[in-house]
Amino acid sequence: MDIQDKGFSDLGLTKHTVGSPSLCCYARNLDQASANNPILVLIQGYPQTSYMWRLTVPLLPPSAPLFIPDLPGYGQSEPLQKHDKLTVGLAILSGLKTLTKSSSTTPIVLIGHDRGGRVSHRLAVSKSDVSNLGFDLLATSVIDIVPTKVQWAAFADPRSSVIYWHWPFLAKPFAPEIINTIGGSKYIFQQGLRSIAGQGSKSATNLASGDAMKVYGAAFDNPSVVQASCADYEAASNVDIEMQDADQAAGKKIEVPFMVLHGSQYIAKTFDVKKVWGEWIMDEKSLSVHCAAEGIGHFVPEEAPEETVQVIGDWLKALKIW
């Protein structure tokens, strides 16, 4: 974790530990947030830590306020009692509220990859809960995901179930015991990275840059991280699905501008991404979808940081947020 701390410090971010259970996060320029310069909340996915944003941060405008947490239970953040995406998302925003120390409404944009994308999706639907914490959610971007309910339904296709084999395995209550008993945590995270990463040399180089594998491997040496990450997937198999079922039945959908950035492999070859997400948006005109360059796999912000920042930056400018 020293590598992660130093890496973010070198990029001009300050480390904070807030809340109980404690949330580890890195931030800058929070006091400079405005409607035209909102706080970008960058939320990582599995099997990583917040360090996955190390290549995108230097490409963002120096004036951009940033809040980059380790997901609860991942990295250096302590686990929660519950890991459904609403509880996790509100815990992250509560940590941010502690740091902003503002009595006025704070504008934010959520940008989440993988599990962080699922947290961001949940908060975009539950915008009233976000508002109650004192935030104005201006827009949301998710990276390389489809809605959780849609992803589970795709397991009817054997090809999809082979690619995403870890979903049902990690959701089983006995998964942490198996993983820790056989010392398989590093194997699982390494195979998870390799199996859905892009196959090009640039993708591999970027993923390994900054000793990232040491950082992620050290995190998964902690049995608590294994336990929490499995609790994350278990929640995705029940509570998160139940919430999404209720949303769809009630016609409760995303009402903020929504950007989906996805890799050219895997999801792009399994789903009609724009059509899928269109069913979860109140107004399809607020939906933007971008497929990354050929050869880019699941880990888009690390594999293609320049394209990630360019696409999201252009989107925010078109919304007149930047």
Score class of each variant (00 low, 15 high):
V18C: 15
T49F: 05
Y46W: 15
G7Q: 03
P58A: 02
S50T: 07
V57C: 05
A27M: 03
S9M: 07
L60Q: 05
L40F: 10
I39A: 02
A27N: 09
T14E: 13
I39H: 08
R28M: 05
Q48V: 13
H16P: 11
Q48D: 14
S9A: 12
L11E: 00
L42E: 01
K6I: 12
M52S: 13
I39S: 08
L23F: 06
W53M: 02
M52A: 08
Y51A: 06
C25M: 12
S20D: 15
C24V: 04
Q44L: 06
L13E: 00
Q44D: 06
L59I: 12
L60C: 05
S22A: 15
T17F: 14
S50G: 10
W53K: 03
G7V: 02
N37V: 00
M52C: 14
H16S: 14
A27C: 14
C24G: 02
P61Y: 09
D10K: 14
L42K: 04
R28E: 01
G7F: 13
R54M: 12
T17H: 13
N37S: 11
Q44I: 02
M52T: 06
L42Q: 05
L23P: 03
P38H: 04
Q32M: 14
S20V: 10
A33D: 02
S9C: 08
K15P: 00
S22C: 13
L55H: 09
V41P: 00
A35T: 15
F8T: 00
Y51W: 15
N36L: 06
M52R: 02
Y51P: 01
L13V: 00
P47G: 09
D31T: 13
D31M: 12
P47Y: 14
Q48P: 00
Y26L: 03
P47T: 09
V41Q: 01
P61D: 12
T49V: 08
A35F: 11
N36Q: 13
L13A: 00
V41W: 05
Y26W: 12
R28T: 07
L55S: 09
S34Y: 06
Q44R: 07
L13T: 00
T14I: 07
W53I: 01
L59T: 09
N37K: 08
G12R: 12
G19Q: 12
W53V: 01
L55V: 06
I43T: 08
I43E: 03
C25V: 10
L60E: 04
